[in-house]
Design a protein around this nucleic acid. Structure first.
Lengths: 336, 336
DNA sequence: GTGAAAGCGCTAACAA
DNA sequence: TTGTTAGCGCTTTCAC
């Protein structure tokens, strides 16, 4: 019943069903506002013709696209796997399509992706954004927005409980007999980096741990590899890395330098990404409920889209959990 | 100069510039068809008003969205990292936006994602599609399409040179003294799986290697873990896995079972994904030029979009390369 | 509950 | 080169 030139429109359906085009429109966009029998006739005709609403036109008219955008700071960082799947799943369940874009760890890319995506979506989820609070609030003015892994005052946010995670990591290290810990930092533009470092600094003393910090060129495996040199000078007995990717790079760098992990140095990561359990030694890490963060973010967005009453507090904090694997061990009595 | 209720339209710009709305439209959508001075006036007015073309309306009118879709069989499979980045980069360079969707290894999800994406894009790239050739050809009728990691007769395709890759892997194993190799298969719906198995079967004898095959529940780390049991029965001295994820799972399963890799069993993967060099032992694998595959796919699509003459042959084959790491070694004289 | 008709913002003939 | 004028397919008043 198709194979003709172009796709059937509401006019075709209307003619076949013997109703007005507006009735067809209504039958689809607001069922209930149309008589049961009429609706049945319309749907029958539509089925026969293989009618499908033109989503672009519909979007333009109604102002709703039925899609939400997700921009991640880096699609190739496994930390986003769970987040992507979480958003995707919750969105699909609500009948929304998720459009994914990649900021490639660059603020400029992020802005471009955003500009491209924004007109085609009803709302946005920003994961690990590298933009300024100001820029983010500007977006929030244009479209409903939820921010992930970051707190932007005035915006709805979903984050992991960094403090609790850091606390458990510190307690773990302390229990193992460590007296000091070195933090290998992430990107300056990362909110999570600031938060993690801050928590370490604040909570270290409580746990009897001296906290120091070294930089890293990038929150990636090769960034960790590169950061090893500086670590080798200080020779800490325990290090906490900004994220697992960095930690994995550290693991490799230390191994290449002949430093035994965890014998001489314990290493803790963040996020518990894919890869954290296949490296050697498997990584002890502060796990975040990534999938839940993603789905909660969508749910929060959905409330905004439907103008439902929002949760009282704008920031939703999800629990973290220390996953102990083999990269941490008791401090050796006699450091070499 | 904005802050009013709604976004300025071509009409606003036209009024301010003292030209007709159609001239404004032309000034933006086909520069050159408008007088230089007029164009300048229009752009000045547009700038003053902060005018931005409504992309949805434009898309509906012109039939071009300026976006291309990329559907990957699984965003959380690192094999797609390079592909995504490749498409993304080439698309951005050409002024296109890439919209990414995830099929989650399910034909149904793939279809849904496609339906959602298709109306909003000018063309599609399908990576590692799990759909039938028939379904794929049906899409190709609706929009320009390029298929990746798969050959669909009648469609433009970009693939890696599986045969060459398999040949080098087999030569490598043979050199190490192996006489037989077991293939751990991927998903039945995967074209690459069929291709790899076929190549192994065809080329094994040439290299003096007996080829057998076992199944796996899924092309993932846990799938590999699960496939180990069957492998343990046969105790091959060399195995080739459908992909790196599976191989990594195998590595872990074998380690847990006390089988030394590569001492007792050599393992070869496919793709050289992120993770192949952080596992233990680092994986020997047939590397594909993933990023190039992605960018070539977009370029091919771009030719179709611009109705440029296509390359003579519909299938573009990119070279593979065996990356030898530590998961392969000489066959032990006396197998246990 | 249903129909008629007026747009939405833009592009694309067609004229001038 | 530029203006005039139809639409595009849908949603949305506003009557009936």
């Amino acid at each position: 019943m198709s194979e003709e030139g172009r796709a059937p429109t509401i006019y075709d359906v209307a003619r076949l069903a013997g109703v007005a085009p507006s009735t067809v429109s209504r039958a689809f966009s607001r069922p209930g506002r149309v008589g049961a029998e009429t609706a049945a006739r319309v749907h029958a005709a539509a089925g026969e013709l293989g009618y499908r609403a033109n989503p672009l036109t519909r979007a333009r008219q109604s102002g709703r696209t039925g899609a939400v955008g997700l921009i991640v700071s880096d699609v190739t960082n496994p930390v986003h796997f769970g987040i992507i799947r979480g958003v995707e799943e919750a969105a699909a369940r609500a009948g929304y399509t998720m459009l994914l874009a990649d900021a490639q760890e660059s603020e400029e890319h992020e802005r471009t992706a955003l500009e491209r995506l924004l007109p085609g979506v009803d709302g946005m989820v920003l994961a690990s954004s590298r933009s300024s609070d100001r820029a983010i609030r500007a977006i929030a003015k244009q479209r409903p927005l939820v921010v992930l892994n970051r707190i932007v005052p005035g915006s709805r946010c979903v984050v992991a409980d960094t403090e609790a995670g850091v606390r458990s990591a510190l307690a773990h290290l302390r229990e193992l007999g460590h007296h000091a810990v070195t933090y290998v930092a992430g990107p300056a533009a990362s909110w999570a980096d600031g938060r993690r470092w801050r928590a370490l600094l604040d909570l270290g003393p409580e746990h009897g741990l001296k906290v120091t910090r070294v930089g890293s060129p990038a929150p990636t495996v090769s960034g960790g590899l590169a950061a090893t040199a500086e670590l080798l000078r200080a020779r800490p007995t325990a290090v906490v890395a900004y994220n697992d990717l960095l930690a994995i790079g550290l693991l490799r760098g230390l191994a290449e330098a002949g430093v035994d992990v965890p014998g001489q140095t314990s290493v803790v990561g963040f996020d518990n990404i894919f890869g954290a359990d296949i490296c050697t030694p498997p990584l002890t890490t502060v796990a975040a409920p990534l999938r839940a963060i993603g789905s909660q973010a969508f749910l929060e967005l959905h409330r905004q889209l439907d103008r439902e009453p929002l949760r009282a507090q704008p920031v939703l904090t999800l629990p973290t959990q220390l996953v102990v694997r083999a990269s941490t061990a008791a401090r050796r009595r006699h450091a070499d």
